[in-house]
Each structure stands twice: as structure tokens, then as C-alpha cells.
Design a binder for these strands. Structure first.
Length: 708
DNA sequence: GCGAGTTATGTTTTT
DNA sequence: CATAACTCGC
């Protein structure tokens, strides 16, 4: 075994793989085989006599976990190591130690849509105006606090500003709503686990002896709560191995804390640090521009990528008329690659925002290119699927009012808004769940006898379903789908319903699959698992189709050919991420991650016009294009094209030379100061920090900048 | 109580 | 532009 592993690894990789006891940090650039190191390390640990059940590996997505499991098994090692995401691990721990964590083990996991309903309710309950305190904003703020393990009690005490005080109130109310529903949101899974591990020493000890080795991949994108969980999990033995790359940190907005990786040596002073700088994935040309681009980030340790591949084709930067031409040309280029013998599943198209997928989809359908859009959650957010799942959730967790409200009258069974409100009021007064109140509907005042009858029938139906619960999930779904009347109502809908019926069929199929493969199948486990599905989880690399995905979803993947699209100011970097330098740097890392996914062919493109919110808008090329360190012939061709559209007078008046520090005025952004100026004649670019706080990169020939 | 039609609203990335 | 929220007539 050891020999077999040795032959395939570089000496640096070996050092990490065969590291014995204590903390280990693997700082590794893209394509350096860091995930591979973890996989081999699991095998090596088992090979050295460690029992598989004593190993816990954490991946960023379920998909990555699945792949790692397969690879470990393929290496001839016994199954049994726990490999999952942080969230999945937390679900397991919380279910097992529910009492100690102070929760019930049949908790619902609230997804974004459920959370949104709860926060809206919370804002309403606090009698606040949703204008100033938009649910989305408050949810983000609450999530940020939770990721830092700040409770509402904490913030209640420390809040001094008006916003913080209101936030504390909403946070508290929101948390109570979740509690009433016996529900945890994504963040709670981490928060409750961290608190459990830190406050219940015996649970912590048990887990320390269960998992004697902890391995964490993509450590640069862990948040503070995850760090605290990891710290507690290795409290007794310090056998932690983390791998990551600060240059690939792209989830700061979600609470990822780069300090986790930067301070690793402080947290584990005896840590051995291994650096993997060789890149086995990409051609030198691709790595050269990746290096050049990422060097523009100020807050970063110098590091370069050492190519091990010797040759490769050029990186191509294309400028297109608009997003339709971009999609069309990308499709054409893909057809050429496929004709040259490249399998379709070795090709991928990346974009910054999901909305950008549509034009590509249209072009691919037109050109008959097989494709798959990597967006898993979309399936589970379809109305019919949510409806079915809501029924199932009620069976497992009757306190889940959100699910109950969803299906009490779906399909329509004559229990309308008024009835629901009256029963809800009754539930509030008696401090019981909505379902409990429905059971006692007889006692609710002002309720029509017809309504009472319908409610009784509904409760009877749910109780009947409960009796049907078994280990196997698929038969329960079929029963519920049929007897709830959902199936019939979809059948009656004609064409639209047909599509929905197919989706439910797919759900039943996947549940049957779950029944077959799960260790201990149960309805509870099934519901909790599917809540944690991620976008990339549905991605099937063997399907022989071109992959379309956001740049965030490309993490950990690689393709022979990659197309990175929409390199325009406001898109990449995204306008909502342009507020400060840190935001821009993260956007730059995102582009860096995209670039380094490509093994052999890289195509980067932007369009001169793009339809944004239904308006065709002239775009400004992304500042990142000028940071790649390449001159492209395409850009010059376009420039000529652009000249025809702009009269000479405008160009000359717009192309004065500016200096750093020059105060300027822009017709829409107002006053500001030039912070950077790249003199490239008619293509000159100025970076302007406006008084509004935003920083924009402007091409002088388009932007009407005035000196003031 | 229900659903069609209208109006407002809000727009990044995701476990 | 796309969807959510809302109104109004049955």
C-alpha cells in the first residue's frame, strides 16, 4: 500500500500524507492535489492501523464527500471513515446528542425560503416597517452574527446604535419562531453544534475519542462557527489536518473567515506546515495569467504557481457585440472542440450570476449541444416538490407550522385564509402549535361547522399518513402524493401539471435510491439530508454534457476547456461587490479560481452590450482583463469597431490625460478622485473613487469624466 | 373561499 | 425583466 502511494506522490505531498500525530496545515495552490492529499492521507492512516471509524474528513460539498468516499474505497481501504460536509456532520451530532443540545431530534431544517418567511414574520411581529428593515437584509445580518457565534443575548447587551437594537429584537423574535417550529436554519446547525461541543464537555470528549483524526478540505472558506467546532473536535488530541489556499477564498460574504487559515499556527503552535506549489493541472499559459491577475491583490502573501505541464495553447480573450453573440460564439467554439475530439463533459462555461445561464441554454439548444446547468436546489424549490415535502415534514415534525400552512389548503380543500387565521389565533393564545390547534378545532370559537368538518378530515388524513411511516421513504411519498389529492390536482391541470407530475416521479425515484443506499433509511434522515443538498450535488460529470455553472460552483472542479464569460465592470467584479477593496479582491480571487479550473484551453469573453433588467446597456470591460498581463489582438480589433460608433470629437474630448489624485465629476456617479490611471491612449482607464463611496473603473472613451 | 389579473418591487454568489 | 404580493369579482 505504502509503496503504491509513494510512487504517485511528490515529496511534499508525501510529507503531508504520512504526517503522524498533531496538527498539519497544507497550504496548496490550485491544481496541486490537495484533495488528493486528504484522500491518500485517509488511506495511509488506515494503512498504519488506525480504524476507519476514527477518521472524520470534512469537505465543502456533499458531492466532494461522495467523490472522496468513492476514491477511498477504490484504493482498497475499508469503508467506515466519516466523510461529509460540516453541515451534515452537525446534523448527525445534533440528532445523536439532541438532549444535551437542548433540542428535539426530529427538527426541521429551514432553507432559504422558510427562513425568509420566518424573518418576515419576525419583522412583522416587532411592528417594524419592512421598507427600512427589509427581510433579506435582516436575514443576512442575523446570519452574519450566527456565523460569528454571536447570540441575540450578546447583541442585546452590546447594541448601542439604533440599527443594532432593532436587529437584536428581530434576531430574538426570529429565533423564537424557529424554536416554536422545532426548526434549525443552516446557521443554527453550526451554532448549536459549536455550543454543544463547547458547553457539554462529556459530549466533546466522546466525539474526540470517536474521531481521533480530523481532516478539513477548503479550510480557507470555513467560518468562525466551523472553526470553533473543529477546535473542539480535536481538543483532546490536536490531530487536525487542514488544507486550503488563501487565494481561493471566495465565501467571505457568507462568513468565511480567512483568519482561520492565517492563524492556524497560532491556534496549533506545533503545527507542521506543508506547502504545495506545483500545479499539475494547467498549462503554463493559463498559470501565467492566473499568477499575474492574483498578484494585483494587495492583502496577500506572495506565491506563484509552478507549472509541471510543459506546453499548451494560448489563452484567448474575446470581445463580442452582446450576450447573445457571446453565447452563440461560445457554442460555436464548443462545437469545434467537440469536433476535434474533446468529450463534452470536459468542457464548461462559467458565469458570475445564475441569470446569465439562460442565453447559453438557448444557444446550446439551438446548436444541439448537450449541456447540464449545475443548479441542484432548483429541483427542490419547485412548487410541487415543496408541497410534497411539506406533507412529509409535518409527519416527522408536527410543530413545523411553515410546512403546515403551506399544505393545509393545497390542494384546495375549503380551508381558507379566515379559518387558518382563527385557528392560528387560538394556537397563539393557548401557546400550542398550529397542528395541535387543528386537532382541537372543535373548541375554536367563530369557526363554521363546515370548516370544523374539513379540518377534522385533514387531521384524520395526516394521522393516517403517520401510521404508514416506515423505514422506506419512497412508498410514503407515493401514498401521500396520491391520498392528499396532490396527484389528482396536478393531473387536472393539463400541460403544466404533466411537467410537475414528472418532477414528483423523479422525487420518488431519488427517494427509492435513497432507500437502497442509506445506512439507516428513515423519513427524518431523508428530509434532513435533502435539505443540505448543494448546487453541485446534481452535477454528473459522466453524463457527457457541457457543464454550465456560476464561478462559485467551480470550486474543486477541473475541465480540459473552460469558458469564463461576462468579464464586464459591474458583473465581474459584481457591482454589489465593489464597495471596498476587500470586495474587489474577493471578486479577483473568484476570477482566479475560474481561470485555474482550466487544464488546457481557456476562453475569456465579454460583451459590449448587455441586457440588464430588460435594458440594453453599454458595458465597460472588466478591470481584471487588464490585470492578466496579456495583449490580445481581439481587443484591438474591437477597438476599431468601437471607433465607428463614437464620433472623433467625443473620443478626443474624453481622452485627456488624467493623473492620480485628480478630482473629477461623472454625470451619474458624481464627484470623486482618480486613484489609478492607466494611460493607454484611446483605451485609457481610470479608477475613480467616488464620494458616494463606490469605486469604479472607467474607460475614458465612454465615461464622460470632467476635471474639476 | 378562490383564482385571475394587476400592480409593486427588487435584483450576487450558497452550505 | 421576473416574480411576489395584492386586489377584485365571482
Amino acid at each position: 500500500m505504502q509503496d503504491k502511494i509513494l510512487r504517485r506522490l511528490t515529496s511534499a505531498q508525501q510529507k503531508a500524507v504520512f504526517h503522524k500525530e498533531g496538527a498539519l496545515l497544507v497550504i496548496a495552490g490550485p491544481g496541486s492535489g490537495k484533495t488528493r492529499v486528504i484522500t491518500y492521507r485517509i488511506a495511509a492512516l488506515i494503512d498504519s492501523g488506525i480504524r476507519p471509524v476514527n477518521i472524520c474528513a470534512i469537505t465543502f460539498t456533499n458531492k466532494a464527500a461522495e467523490e472522496m468516499r468513492q476514491r477511498v474505497v477504490a484504493m482498497g481501504t475499508p469503508v467506515g471513515a466519516h466523510i461529509s460536509t460540516f453541515h451534515s456532520l452537525c446534523v448527525r451530532v445534533l440528532r445523536q446528542y439532541a438532549d444535551a443540545a437542548g433540542i428535539a431530534s426530529n427538527f426541521s431544517i429551514f432553507d432559504a425560503a422558510d427562513q425568509s418567511r420566518c424573518i418576515k414574520q419576525a419583522v412583522k411581529d416587532c411592528e417594524l416597517d419592512t421598507g427600512n428593515f427589509s427581510p433579506a437584509r435582516m436575514l443576512e445580518a442575523v446570519s452574519t452574527l450566527k456565523n460569528k457565534l454571536i447570540t441575540f443575548e450578546d447583541i442585546e447587551q452590546s447594541a448601542d446604535g439604533f440599527f443594532d437594537k432593532v436587529l437584536a429584537k428581530i434576531y430574538k423574535r426570529y429565533q423564537h419562531i424557529l424554536e416554536d417550529n422545532n426548526a434549525l436554519d443552516f446557521d443554527d446547525l453550526l451554532v448549536k453544534s459549536a455550543h454543544l461541543l463547547e458547553n457539554q464537555k462529556d459530549v466533546c470528549s466522546k466525539l474526540n475519542s470517536r474521531f481521533r483524526y480530523l481532516l478539513i478540505d477548503e479550510y480557507q472558506d470555513t467560518n468562525h462557527a466551523q472553526y470553533r467546532i473543529a477546535r473542539a473536535l480535536v481538543r483532546d488530541h490536536n490531530n487536525i489536518c487542514a488544507t486550503g489556499d488563501p487565494d481561493q477564498s471566495i465565501y467571505r460574504w457568507r462568513g468565511a473567515d480567512i483568519r482561520n487559515i492565517l492563524d492556524f499556527e497560532r491556534d496549533w503552535p506545533d503545527a507542521v506546515i506543508v506547502k504545495l506549489e506545483e500545479n499539475f493541472r494547467s498549462t503554463p499559459n493559463i498559470l501565467k495569467i492566473a499568477d499575474h491577475l492574483i498578484a494585483a491583490n494587495q492583502s496577500r502573501k506572495q506565491k506563484i504557481l509552478i507549472p509541471t505541464r510543459k506546453t499548451g495553447s494560448d489563452v484567448i480573450v474575446n470581445c463580442f457585440e452582446d450576450e447573445h453573440e457571446e453565447a452563440q460564439q461560445v457554442a460555436g467554439q464548443i462545437q469545434r472542440l467537440i469536433a476535434d475530439g474533446l468529450p463534452a463533459n470536459e468542457i464548461a462555461v462559467f458565469y458570475r450570476v445564475n441569470a446569465a445561464s439562460r442565453v447559453f441554454e438557448e444557444a446550446f439548444i439551438k446548436e444541439k449541444i448537450p449541456y447540464q446547468i449545475v443548479r441542484g436546489v432548483e429541483f427542490y424549490s419547485r412548487k410541487e416538490i415543496r408541497d410534497v415535502l411539506a406533507y412529509l415534514k409535518i409527519l416527522v415534525n408536527p410543530a413545523d407550522d411553515i410546512a403546515l400552512v403551506r399544505i393545509i389548503n393545497t390542494p384546495a380543500r375549503g380551508i381558507g385564509k379566515t379559518t387558518v387565521e382563527r385557528v392560528m389565533a387560538y394556537a397563539d393564545v393557548h401557546n400550542i402549535s398550529f397542528y395541535e390547534a387543528l386537532k382541537r378545532a372543535e373548541k375554536v370559537k367563530n369557526l363554521a361547522s363546515s370548516a370544523k368538518k374539513r379540518i377534522a378530515a385533514f387531521v384524520g388524513m395526516i394521522e393516517g399518513f403517520k401510521k404508514a411511516i416506515n423505514k422506506e421513504v419512497a412508498p410514503v411519498i407515493e401514498l401521500v402524493f396520491d391520498e392528499s389529492g396532490l396527484q389528482k390536482s396536478l393531473k387536472d391541470q393539463g400541460k403544466d401539471g404533466k411537467r410537475a407530475l414528472e418532477n414528483v416521479d423523479e422525487l420518488i425515484n431519488s427517494a427509492a435510491d435513497y432507500d437502497k443506499t442509506a445506512e439507516e433509511p428513515s423519513l427524518l434522515d431523508y428530509l434532513q439530508q435533502i435539505s443540505l443538498f448543494s448546487d453541485v450535488d446534481t452535477y454528473d460529470p459522466s453524463a457527457g454534457r457541457v457543464a454550465l455553472m456560476t464561478l462559485h460552483n467551480t470550486k474543486g472542479l477541473e475541465f480540459e476547456a473552460a469558458f469564463i464569460t461576462g468579464l464586464e465592470d459591474g458583473i465581474l467584479p459584481h457591482e454589489r461587490s465593489s464597495e471596498d477593496d476587500d470586495d474587489i479582491e474577493e471578486e479577483r480571487r473568484l476570477f482566479f479560481v475560474g481561470i485555474t479550473r482550466a487544464k488546457s484551453h481557456l476562453f475569456i469573453s465579454y460583451a459590449q452590450y448587455r441586457t440588464i433588467r430588460g435594458r440594453q446597456t453599454r458595458t465597460i470591460p472588466s478591470q481584471f482583463l487588464y490585470e492578466l498581463g496579456i495583449e490580445t489582438t481581439q481587443q484591438q480589433d474591437d477597438s476599431e469597431y468601437i471607433y465607428e460608433e463614437i464620433d472623433d470629437e467625443t473620443i478626443s474630448s474624453n481622452c485627456e490625460t488624467f493623473k492620480k489624485g485628480q478630482p473629477v465629476r461623472h454625470p451619474s456617479f458624481g464627484r470623486g478622485t482618480i486613484t489609478e490611471f492607466h494611460d493607454m491612449g484611446q483605451n485609457s482607464i481610470a479608477v475613480v473613487k467616488f464620494n458616494s463611496g463606490q469605486t469604479k473603473t472607467l474607460m475614458l472613451k465612454y465615461a464622460k469624466l470632467e476635471k474639476i
